[in-house]
Design a protein around this nucleic acid. Structure first.
Lengths: 250, 250
DNA sequence: CGCCCTTTTGACTCCACTCAAGCGTCGTGG
DNA sequence: CCACGACGCTTGAGTGGAGTCAAAAGGGCG
């Protein structure tokens, strides 16, 4: 986390030069990354920044979809509810990810802050206007949506066909993969969400998630550190488990 | 089915007037529906039509994503496999639906014909060129992708949190809803796919799917007809069941 | 230090899976 | 035209993995 905080501090020093986007630390990985200086200035005119404390609801399933968001810092969980309270977390949104692509102008899920989160908010109206003058923007949004679709299909495979152990292993691998792609190729993976959130994401109960973690720990495949950190001791073993290997390689 | 066949026959009579798209019976509901005459002519220049017999593989998970498709008649199933053979069907594609939106230029799933299917094939290269001159096209593709995302999230809720009975009820409702939106507001729903396909779609076994159908039948909520037709006798009861009601309303 | 909330562990239950047998339907060939 | 076989669907009996209920252990914060 220390490295990221430094980047933020440096950005703040330049913040009064004009557009907030010009100094955004996650711009290069977000949707905004594909825009040139002029386009970025246009985008800046409609963006509003905001902070969400842990637990804050950004929007709820069924709300009119009035905004798009880009996560700058923190993490968001997306979830759907059944009438009797059963919950499915459909995804986690991390810095650089887009949030709020909706159809029918209605959000299909709720979004809540897993931890203190910093967001860029783009009014849908303004975006629609902007899209007409910046074709690149829609292209990038389509890419983002295609990405999410691939992730959703992987998750369907996980929910429909994987065992509890395989689900937890896949989840840790996905977090590690993401961290690696975002330039933190560390064996230490940050797991900021609660066991309940993980359970609702993986279609399990907290007890089963906890037991699965314990089994991975006992098998010397991971180590549970304080502050929601997990050290991956045997990446290959974890990969095998995630796709149906029985974990008996050595 | 008879009504549809008639429409096809009529289309064929006009087919030699020029572009095949001009007489396409599903154009108004597909991605092509939002194009004007000029744009349609451009699209026609890159489209290739093709027929797939039942069981034919259109493309496989991991293949280079060289084409986009539009289903004209029939049905396609999308599926992913685990190394040990466990299968998850991630979706069914029906007439008017788009197929093949991929990221990384690699298909994330396999596509196979559930029944004899007629497809329009668009080379990706050509589409990319076309998208530059027809911004509308990308807009429509984004809409399609957003739609698929919403469906994927519903499916995650189903796979992660619903019981077997709820899953089968939800599945039938989704088929009925689709038929209604496509102008066949009938209590008779066509279920063209096998129990195995349904099971792999719902994260169950064929036996459990079959038992669930039987229970719905015994509860007088549906009636199983020959040729893969299902009559919905109690739509309200089915809706209740799909979302967690216990089915004890009368 | 003590409280509260999350996580872990334990004992038992149950829903869906597995294995197995019967049934119905369709297509084929005698 | 019917007999046969193949395949898909249904039904039955028994098992097991994850859920439920309950209690202990850990960790963070005032």
């Amino acid at each position: 986390m220390a490295r990221l905080e430094f980047a933020v501090a440096r950005s703040v020093a330049f913040a009064n030069l004009g557009s907030p986007c010009a100094t955004c630390e996650i711009r290069k990985i977000g949707v905004c990354g594909s825009l040139d200086a002029d386009e970025l200035r246009e985008l800046c005119q409609i963006v509003k920044e905001s902070d969400c404390p842990e637990g804050r609801i950004v929007f709820s399933e069924g709300d009119a979809a009035e905004n798009l968001y880009n996560v700058v810092r923190g993490a968001i969980r997306l979830s759907k509810l059944l009438p009797d309270g059963r919950r499915q977390v459909t995804g986690f949104v991390f810095p650089g990810d887009f949030l709020g692509i909706a159809f029918n102008d209605i959000y299909a899920y709720s979004a809540e802050a897993v931890s203190a989160t910093h967001l860029c908010r783009f009014p849908r109206r303004g975006m629609e206007r902007l899209v007409k003058s910046i074709p690149n923007l829609e292209h990038r949004l389509l890419g983002e949506a295609a990405n999410e679709l691939v992730a959703a299909q992987d998750q369907m495979l996980l929910l429909g066909r994987k065992t509890a152990k395989e689900r937890v292993a896949s989840f840790l691998l996905a977090l590690a993969d993401r961290a690696r792609r975002r330039g933190r190729p560390d064996a230490q993976v940050a797991v900021p969400m609660s066991r309940t959130d993980i359970a609702d994401y993986l279609g399990l109960t907290t007890e089963t998630v906890s037991r699965s973690f314990t089994k991975l720990k006992t098998a010397k495949i991971i180590r549970l550190e304080p502050h929601g950190l997990v050290t991956i001791l045997d990446l290959e073993g974890l990969s095998d488990l995630a796709q149906g290997g029985d974990g008996t390689d050595d």
